[in-house]
Design a binder for these strands. Structure first.
Lengths: 346, 346
DNA sequence: TTGAAAGCGCTAACAG
DNA sequence: CTGTTAGCGCTTTCAA
């Protein structure tokens, strides 16, 4: 037999009190006698009373829920960020509702609508890589629902500033190149994906600037556009080895292409890092399991999620007076030096 | 200036219609004239009307939301399952709310309460590994909220059957051993974690039964209890190599320990798979990036999520008459044969 | 085809 | 300290 869930009204009838008193007792208001509170709590426990958050949210105009919209929950990066988000939101007493855009702008729009319908109090978004229009986000802001972008962010949303948390890809790339120079490398190549994606663009720029800063010439053939997976890495490496003057180091914009390059180099009978040093980006699990282990850059995934939530909560608590202009937080990456780039003894 | 969100009442006033008509028009009821519908839709679009799902849910008693409770959203397995869940739920028009128990029974209880408060229509759970008591789940069932366990399931909840989706670990292990026998291995060792966890227990049993089925003796020292990470795998391997009669194959209950074993074997100058074949479990990304690549068992992560949601929806649609006894779905694992166990040419 | 009225469960004035 | 009243926004009888 289906136990209908006990409501405040049920408790009220049972105890011959009013609904408001029950509500106050459960909320532990000062103006309810301790005796009454006891009775209410006892009965609530006995009937296994569960407050209906929907009703409370409707009444209070606060859903206690945050929305998350990511391209997908697969791979290395997003699960970790989502983990960071969920953990931090929980700490603050918020529920988390999750949607995936599947890298599709249409789904992104639809999911934003769903989140708004669900009356979430704030939204954390990482853009689909196909997104070109941003009206759906402007609509969110018009409704004064705080919005924080992370990782894949809008550079300038119709001139308006938006809150965002991202990684300093430029800095990460710069450090990689500096490290390689320190290890004695002088001809450093770079694997990159399409430069219209900000991650690749910024890493590429960091690469170029670091070369110049260290007085190394920038040679166009050393920047290789390849598909950023294992196979692409192999192909990129093949191209580099065929050059008249092959490089003595490769900095790949991700780890998968780095591992592809590593494999090819080894097959050709060359040594890593002595003949060619290799560095990846993202610090995926497997970088410490290959032979040699691969130097990479940690993206602070969980910290990014945590930071994004904190920023959102800050915006949520700000009144229109205390409201500061939208913050753009840039996290520092961490270079993890492993065997694939360690030419000199520590 | 904060645009208050447009409500049905607002539309009603504007169009000099009643709220009920607006509601019906937006729901595309037959008994509203096409002309009226047009007018309503036009204004709704103009004012960027967003239905308040909270209010609708409260009124209808249906939140359109599913709850997910996992130990955590990290590692290889759970993110993929969650991805499967989120994708399938979206297809069916459900929102997904996610919580993590962090492997802690207390948090699990608390999160179940939160999900119930949020009035989710069904819950998908994978148990925390510390969970010993199940009253919190019985409470859910009493409230007739459908509950589906996945991966980490309750074997028998106070005698009651519960709906569950899991992987046939026994079968996976059995296939691994059969494959190793086929490759000519005769002394097959096994790395396992604590046997009170069903994944390890079932894999271990599959290992034992397969040995017997192939007429191989079961030797106790060949079952090694070790911490199921890289370091544990190395230690386990060390122990095995010290045996008077070391094994010619190791089946590890996970991939990380397998990679540890692999590394140690290579360091000792032994060849994989010729001297010692190695097989893992889970089909983590890195198993195809090591040298040699590691044979492993795919756990059908996304399919598990998808299946769990479908089962839940089926339960949700069942009336008390059509209700069947709780289903226990067991997915078939898939053995992926790679270099670390391929002694014979294909 | 439309409207009036009631209520989902909760909370927050306001009153006593 | 407790009760009365009203209403969050929506849907659904019932009546016109």
């Amino acid at each position: 037999m289906a136990n209908r869930r006990a409501s405040i009204t049920d408790l009220a009838k049972e105890l011959k009190l009013s609904a408001s008193t029950i509500s106050r007792a459960l909320a532990n208001h000062d103006d309810v006698s301790e005796a009454t509170k006891q009775r209410v709590r006892a009965l609530a426990a006995e009937l296994n009373y569960q407050p209906n958050q929907l009703a409370a949210a409707l009444r209070k105009g606060r859903s206690n829920t945050l929305g998350v919209l990511v391209p997908h929950i697969t791979g290395h990066f997003f699960p970790l960020v989502v983990h960071g988000i969920a953990t931090e939101a929980s700490k603050a007493g918020f529920n988390v509702m999750i949607f995936q855009s599947n890298e599709d702008e249409q789904q992104e729009r639809k999911n934003i609508d769903l989140l708004m319908n669900a009356q979430v109090e704030g939204i954390l978004v990482s853009l689909a890589n196909t997104t070109q229009h941003f009206e759906h986000f402007e609509a969110v802001q018009k409704q004064t629902v705080p919005l924080v972008f992370f990782d894949r962010i809008i550079e300038g949303m119709e001139g308006q500033k938006v809150a965002a948390v991202s990684l300093d890809d430029y800095q990460g790339a710069y450090e990689v190149v500096s490290h390689l120079v320190e290890q004695g490398c002088t001809r450093i190549a770079h694997f990159t994906g399409p430069l219209h994606l900000n991650i690749h663009k910024n890493r590429h720029q960091g690469y170029l600037d670091a070369l110049q800063a260290h007085g190394l010439p920038v040679e166009e053939p050393l920047t290789v556009f390849c598909s950023m997976d294992q196979k692409g890495g192999r192909q990129g490496m093949q191209k580099l080895l065929r050059l008249a003057a092959p490089p003595d180091a490769v900095f790949s914009s991700n780890d998968l292409a780095a591992v592809g390059a590593l494999q090819l180099v080894k097959e050709k009978g060359l040594r890593v890092p002595q003949d060619i040093a290799i560095v990846g980006f993202s610090n995926e699990k497997f970088t410490s399991l290959t032979e040699p282990t691969i130097t990479s850059v940690d993206q602070r995934c969980e910290q990014m999620g945590q930071t994004a939530v904190r920023l959102l909560l800050k915006m949520l608590n700000a009144t229109s007076e205390t409201a500061a202009p939208p913050q753009n937080i840039v996290l520092k990456p961490k270079l993890l030096i492993r065997e694939s780039s360690s030419r000199k003894p520590q």
